[in-house]
Amino acid sequence: MTARGHGTFPEAPIGRLTRLDGLRGVLAVYVMLGHAAPFIRWPPGVGPFIEAVVGHGMAAVDLFFALSGLVIVQSMARFEGRTAPFFAARARRLLPIYLVVLAASIPILTAGSPFALLPWLHPGDAAHQIWEVGLPHPLAAHIALHLALIQGALPRAMLPDAEFSLLGPAWSLSTEWQFYALIALLMTRIGNDRRGLARLTVIFLALALAGRAYAGLAPPSWQFGRAFLPNQAAYFALGIAAARLWRGSDGTRLFLVVLAVAMGLGLSHSTGSGAIGKALPPLTWALAIVAQRAPANRLIRPFARVLGHPVLLWLGAISYPLYLVNEPVQRTLALLFGGADPAQFALLWGGLALAVPIGLAALLHHAVERRFMRQRRRSLQAAAPAAAP
């Protein structure tokens, strides 16, 4: 696992992408808003508008995957393809916060379902798609899958809804872990040079097309959920293509091809407003890449300034814990304040459902995440001498 393999890693890693850090903050807040909005009884005519504005949380997570595609190939480059320190660094980055929030989510689910306290919500609406009614069965199997981060790699016939059963946002971490395993396997053989990144992009596009074909042919019981890597591979390909674009202008054509394929795959999965939501991530990703590469451009300058704002950069810094904690915190608050008049609930719960996750995420970032990130930086510094000639 520590061998460098046969790939080449001659290219210097991309530096800090500040505006993409700001994008992280936007996405984390957007997901939090999308998780909160369905639980409020809006005045007549307002609900559909709110849903149209903040009801594309899955599209926001797709953009997180594109960010990961860009970041992870650079992380592998820093470790010169050595998979053991790469996985150790990723584990220190993801697992401490994840395990803390996962451990807290189980007693929160044990406390009962808030839906009985919110009579304006009905089975089948958006709110019931966000929160589970209670603990899943068999509980031990679901816990084991979540600890191994493979809850998204099983077909529905084996353990239905395993990807969301204990901690809803954790489905995307399972997808990420599948990506890490595959990218580590491939990059040790293909490398990190321009040709290698182009090949990686094509491989992930092919994986996405294969996943779409399987989804169209397999029986429903053997379908995979959204957390299965092939179902999200096009977005990782977008990130890898962006890394390739940074290596020279000859990456523009590949980036545009991936952009078109990702949009086509997204549109093929949905119709109506859902199709629009699936078309948004590739377009937003392209706009963010332009904002990072050409922030002084007259047309893109306002967007680049927004993404570089200090508030968004701070939210980007706490985006990972914010993404994980918002759902269990909002559920806990509903157990505390449910049963109130819908208007009172909207005012009290609505404000706390935004403020408390941000405060808790900041606490976790400073008390847990930064501590382990310092260890990760020491690992990177230890790896640097190996990269010297």
Score class of each variant (00 low, 15 high):
134 G>K: 04
134 G>C: 12
134 G>D: 09
134 G>V: 12
134 G>Y: 14
134 G>L: 06
135 L>T: 04
136 P>S: 09
139 L>S: 08
139 L>E: 04
139 L>P: 05
140 A>H: 09
141 A>H: 06
141 A>Y: 02
144 A>Y: 12
146 H>D: 15
147 L>P: 01
147 L>I: 13
148 A>F: 14
148 A>G: 13
150 I>W: 06
151 Q>A: 13
151 Q>F: 12
151 Q>R: 05
151 Q>V: 14
153 A>T: 12
153 A>M: 11
154 L>D: 04
155 P>K: 01
155 P>T: 07
156 R>T: 14
157 A>D: 05
158 M>C: 07
158 M>D: 04
159 L>Q: 13
159 L>V: 11
160 P>Y: 06
161 D>T: 05
162 A>W: 09
162 A>I: 12
163 E>F: 01
163 E>Q: 15
164 F>K: 14
165 S>L: 01
165 S>T: 05
166 L>V: 07
166 L>N: 08
166 L>A: 14
168 G>K: 09
168 G>Y: 03
169 P>W: 03
172 S>R: 00
172 S>G: 10
173 L>T: 06
174 S>I: 02
174 S>E: 02
175 T>L: 06
176 E>F: 11
176 E>W: 04
179 F>S: 10
180 Y>K: 10
180 Y>P: 11
181 A>G: 14
181 A>M: 10
181 A>T: 05
182 L>C: 10
182 L>Y: 03
183 I>V: 15
184 A>K: 04
184 A>W: 05
185 L>V: 03
185 L>T: 03
186 L>A: 15
186 L>H: 13
186 L>D: 01
187 M>A: 12
188 T>R: 15
188 T>V: 06
188 T>P: 02
188 T>D: 00
190 I>M: 11
190 I>H: 12
191 G>P: 01
191 G>K: 08
192 N>C: 13
192 N>V: 08
192 N>P: 00
193 D>C: 06
194 R>I: 00
194 R>M: 00
194 R>L: 05
197 L>A: 09
197 L>G: 05
198 A>R: 15
199 R>F: 00
199 R>V: 07
199 R>H: 03
200 L>W: 07
201 T>A: 12
202 V>R: 10
202 V>H: 02
203 I>F: 13
203 I>M: 13
205 L>W: 02
205 L>I: 15
207 L>E: 10
208 A>Y: 03
211 G>W: 03
211 G>A: 11
211 G>L: 09
212 R>I: 01
213 A>L: 15
213 A>I: 08
214 Y>K: 06
217 L>F: 10
217 L>H: 14
218 A>E: 10
218 A>D: 11
219 P>D: 11
219 P>V: 01
227 A>M: 03
230 P>E: 08
230 P>D: 08
231 N>Q: 13
231 N>T: 08
231 N>G: 09
234 A>G: 00
235 Y>E: 12
236 F>E: 08
236 F>W: 00
236 F>C: 02
237 A>C: 04
238 L>M: 15
238 L>N: 01
238 L>E: 07
